[in-house]
Every structure is written in C-alpha cells, then in structure tokens.
C-alpha cells in the first residue's frame, strides 16, 4: 500500500516546521508551511489522516497534499460539493459530515477564495436535506454560500468522450467555477456497491437522473470525463456499511475517523473501497474510469502518506 508515513516521520517534519511557527506564528507559518508542503506535495498522491476531529483531519490532510493555496488562488470562485442528498441526520452516515464541509469551505476562504458555493441536487426535499444534514448551518457559519439549485440554471454540456451519453445538463455554477472540490461521504450503495467521489458528481446534474441507472458504470464515467474536481476529499469519519445510500440504522454505521485526500478522483475512490474490505478494481465503474484514463486504480503505484493524529481514546475510536 505505497509508502507508509509513520507518526515518527511526521513528527520530525512537523517539529522542523514548528520551529519557524513558534518564532513568528502568523508571518512565518504561511511562508514556511507552503514551502514544506510544496516539497512534499509533489511526491504524494493520497494523504490519509486518521483519529482526529473532523476539522483537524481535513486541515492536516489538505496541508499534506500541498495546502489549499495549491488549488485555490486569490479571488477564485470555488464550488464545494458535499453529499447532502438525503433527509438524514449526520450520525446516520448517509451524508457528508457538516464539520468536514465547513472546514473545507473555511480553508478555501482562507486561501483567498472570493466565494465558496455549496449546493447539491438532493433526492429528498432540498430544504429538509440542507437542514437536517447540518451542512447548511455549518457552512453559513464559516461564511460559505449555501443555496438551492434553480431549475433554469442548468446548461447542456456536450460529452465528446461519452460512450452511452453524448450530452447532459450540468448546473451552471459548476461550469463557471475556478475550482471544484468534491467532498463525498464514503457509503454503501446498492448499485455501485460503494458511493464515493465519482458517484457524488451526480449532484451537479440536471434532467431525469433515474435514466442513468441502466448501464450505470459507463454512464457515470461518461459524466466524469467532463466534470473533473481538482481535489477530492473523502469523508470516512464514519462509513455507512449497509443499507446505503440512505441508511437510517446506527448499527450499519462504523466510525473510521478518517479523511482521505487526493487530486486523482479514481485513486481516492480506489482507496475508499478498502473501508469495505475490497479492492478498487472490484468496482465496475472504477475499472471503467481507469480504462478510459481518468486516473490510477492500482494503489501500489501510488504514493500514499498516512498520518495518525492519535487524538482519540480507544473508546471514541470505536464510535
């Protein structure tokens, strides 16, 4: 599973970086951090952070991949796409953890984003989903812009590399955004077995999405050829292992306290399959995406850095 980055390694790096931070926290940290991050970012494909609070894990994972400033430039408009499809409370694991989303939004704004937009085409009534998933409130609190998608604001996008579909409607703000950050939750799904990053892109689509479900593996990859998030942040703080994608039973939810970050959406999804105890290559849509050159499916070919924050006692870790 690639190169293990132990806690010891991490502490070494952190302590050297920490020296500068101690001297002049605000000024030097920005300079020093980005240099350190840039250096390591070139080597790392996936950063996995475990056993911390959701916000802290996101923070560390993003800085591990090169910091938000690697993706978000001053004045950018960013679209952050959580999964808030269902009218379910966060504890059921059917939607992205609100603290994860809020932290991503906060990091974007910190990196100088002009606006961070958060929205989703939900499957239950939107007002209920936005509210009960806790995402609306959390994102508003950090200054993000949460809104309901407007039916007229979709644009028909040609899909030149599409096999099953040649065009589909996509929400306009997605196309106009400078940066796209996908923040899916890892969960079970009846059709694709696991729903992660690529499946999460469906929340940007208009039209009758029910029609995508026949020959789904090919169709979802068709979509992925035109919607490419620069950054994927897998929320595996807790994973819905059965009865997905909607869940509703706490016994089906297992707490992993993990955040997985990567720039290759196939690679992160492939990593996410591990939570269910199987390989990415066992997922039809991922094989399809890999075959079409959208990303790397073989984790042994990737550089994966693991950071264990070890902030949780064992009882908490078990959830």
């Amino acid at each position: 599973m690639g190169i293990e980055f132990t806690r010891r390694d991490f502490l070494k790096l952190a302590s050297s970086a920490g020296l500068g931070i101690f001297i002049s926290p605000r000024l030097t940290s920005a300079v020093f951090k980005t240099q350190a991050e840039k250096k390591s970012a070139t080597k790392v494909d996936i950063v996995v952070v475990e056993n911390g609070s959701p916000a802290e894990m996101v923070q560390r994972a993003v800085s591990g991949i090169g910091g938000m400033s690697r993706f978000v430039k001053q004045g950018d408009v960013v679209v952050v796409k959580p999964n808030m499809s269902w009218d379910r409370l966060p504890k059921f694991g059917a939607t992205t953890h609100p603290e994860v989303v809020a932290e991503v939004v906060r990091l974007c704004l910190e990196a100088g984003a002009k606006k961070v937009k958060v929205f989703d085409r939900t499957l239950n009534e939107p007002r209920r989903c936005y509210r009960h998933t806790g995402i609306q409130k959390a994102v508003k609190a950090v200054g993000g812009d949460v809104f309901f998608m407007y039916k007229r604001n979709y644009v028909k996008v040609p899909i030149p590399k599409g096999i099953r579909i040649k065009s589909w409607e996509v929400y306009r703000d997605v196309l106009e955004a400078d940066v796209l950050i996908n923040v899916p939750v890892v969960k079970h799904h009846g059709l694709t077995r696991v729903s992660m990053g690529i499946k999460n892109l469906m929340g940007f689509l208009g039209q009758n999405r029910g029609r995508l479900h026949r020959h789904f593996d090919q169709k979802i990859v068709d979509i992925a050829t035109v919607l490419k998030p620069q950054l994927t942040i897998l929320d595996a703080t807790r994973v819905l292992l059965r009865n997905g994608p909607q869940g509703g039973n706490l016994q089906d939810v297992k707490w992993f306290h993990t955040i997985v970050v990567g720039t290759d959406m196939v690679a992160t999804d492939s990593y996410g399959a591990n939570f269910f105890g199987f390989q990415g290559s066992e997922l039809g849509y991922l094989r399809e995406a890999h075959a079409r050159g959208l990303g790397e499916i073989d984790l042994t070919k990737l550089i994966i850095r693991k950071i264990n924050l070890d902030k949780l006692n064992s009882a908490e870790a078990r959830g």
């Binding site: 499957l123 009846g190 059709l191 479900h213 026949r214 009865n243 994608p245």
Partner: peptide, 22 residues
C-alpha cells in the same frame, strides 16, 4: 418492472427505500 420484464438491473426503488432495514 425493468429487471422483471427485461432482465436489466435497476435499483432506483431500492436506493430510495427509507426504512433502516430496506
């Protein structure tokens, strides 16, 4: 129903079924 009459997989109803045990 699509699987029953045409033999193609479809799972839209299952996906939406809200009960904890589907």
């Amino acid at each position: 129903c699509i699987p029953w009459y045409s033999g193609d997989d479809c799972m839209v109803c299952e996906e939406h079924c809200p009960t904890p045990e589907k």
